[in-house]
């Protein structure tokens, strides 16, 4: 199991795996749901699913051709960081009675 019990590290690992994965979002939901059943933390699963749909490592070459390398770099880097933030905020809100 590559996931630990450290929320920050788990979200980082989830985001990293989600970033390099590609495919329709539906696949990420199914994998995420199954990971959750296997005991992976919600924070890691959320980071994984959000990174899957927002970070486009595979699409990067085409994105950089169409919208410049600088934009593609900044967008993907911020999407990666935001996937961790989204995971932490979502789980914090849920744990605080939302």
């Amino acid at each position: 199991m590559i996931f630990s019990k450290n929320p920050l590290l788990d979200s980082l690992i989830g985001s990293a795996i989600g970033s390099v994965s590609t495919g329709p979002p539906i696949t990420s939901y199914i994998i995420g749901g199954e990971l959750l059943k296997e005991g992976v933390s919600l924070i890691a699963v959320t980071a994984f699913m959000v990174a899957w749909v927002t970070v486009g490592v595979i699409q990067f070459p085409f994105e950089s051709i169409m919208l410049t390398v600088k934009f593609a770099l900044i967008r993907n880097a911020t999407s990666f960081l935001f996937s961790i933030v989204v995971a932490i905020v979502t789980v914090l809100l849920l744990n605080n009675g939302w």
Partner: peptide
């Protein structure tokens, strides 16, 4: 591009695996 990550037609699948509360909070965030 970021908003494209929120997929209304796929809501049934995400709701199948996760709670409605989770989906709502995640979408809003």
């Amino acid at each position: 591009l970021y908003s494209r990550a929120i997929k209304v037609p796929l809501l049934p699948v995400i709701l199948f695996y996760f709670s409605a509360k989770y989906v709502f909070v995640l979408t809003a965030t």
